[in-house]
Design a protein around this nucleic acid. Structure first.
Lengths: 189, 189
DNA sequence: CGAGGCCTTGACCGCGGTCAATGCCCGTGG
DNA sequence: CCACGGGCATTGACCGCGGTCAAGGCCTCG
């Protein structure tokens, strides 16, 4: 149950088994269904999630009702509505499992306790933030000033299995194009 | 010379004067001209910058020669080509001062030394990362699925002095529209 | 005083969005 | 097990936003 999570830490920092046990002990397993919402826009986010199996999607819906997806967390990745978790203000994004999934969940309090008391945990959190920040930057640069075809090619390069894994509709909302356009582009290869 | 920087730390964490002195002692002042480049695409980034006066711009130029600006750091803000600084791989972005500026600069080695040895510094760095990550997210959500007029309104809301401070061309490259379009929109108020 | 860069504005047009019709897949209930 | 229904993918027709290109004027700096 905790293998993937332990592996996650072991591959990112030097850590002994007791410390690892202490960390993973704060996580509890939850099972979710396809398209289950874990957090709605406007809620206060209370948990950080680690994906053991399945896939987590972070997205928003604007006032015109248009969905925009920011991030997919697949197996072995962390994900949550970070701004809300950090500041404890109403979330901007929805958190959803798009497939039947198994998640390891840790409460906000436990999480930041670990950050403050376990140096290895703080270090891994720092890595998560650095990586998240870098990923977001790449996305800004990768999408701005590119037309639809180039954006599709971009994901095919950087996240090859992405288009296979998620529905056309969700992929389109991630790319900032319409499902129609994505469909047309894919048919041209 | 170090007032703004000391203020930056004091407003973000509890810190005594000796520790503060220790930290700021690693920063050296540099003065730059309008449009001076501090880092070119492909260089390895060696410094973190704190803006005492002026303005730092982070941008890239893609293969078609189109500029995309990701971030402006004004007085009292940190900025650098973070992916390159962290991983010591060739930078994707240029770092430039768009006005005559005064910057406080710290080397990568000193910076990460402080992160590892001074808990208050680590904490502030964590805040920088969290904030940067949140800002990037807001930008993704704020720009995706919005047309040109809405994007302009968005910056006017969230960064009111932005359009007054930077040139039309740079503002446009930040918004992902052409200077022509920005000009047309501004004339319509 | 001349040159270069930027802003503004006009004319044109192509990418990609909207809307709608059709067909497929899959889950649900009779 | 099959029939039905809803959601999604695909495709066509249309058209509007905003990009490109070019011209003209202004400001700055050498």
């Amino acid at each position: 149950m905790y293998e993937k999570l332990e592996q996650y830490f072991k591959s990112r920092t030097i850590i002994d088994q007791p410390t690892l046990d202490h960390i993973v002990g704060h996580f509890t397993l939850i099972k979710t269904k396809r398209n289950e919402l874990l957090l709605k826009q406007g809620d206060i986010c209370k948990h950080y999630y680690f994906v053991n199996k399945g896939c987590l999607r972070l997205f928003t819906i604007n006032k015109e009702g248009v969905e925009t997806t920011r991030y997919f967390a697949f197996e072995g990745a962390f994900g949550t509505a970070l701004p809300s978790l950090i500041t404890q203000t109403p979330a901007f994004e929805f958190v959803q499992t798009i497939e039947k999934s198994e998640l390891l969940r840790i409460s906000r309090d436990s999480f930041f306790n670990l950050v403050d008391t376990v140096p290895q945990f703080a270090r891994v959190y720092r890595q998560i933030l650095e990586l998240g920040f870098i990923t977001a930057q790449k996305r800004i640069y990768g999408f701005q000033g590119f037309d639809a075809i180039e954006k599709v090619k971009w994901v095919m390069n950087y996240q090859p299995d992405f288009l296979l894994r998620v529905s056309n509709k969700m992929a389109a909302s991630y790319l900032g194009i319409t499902p129609s356009t994505l469909s047309r582009i894919k048919s041209k290869l």
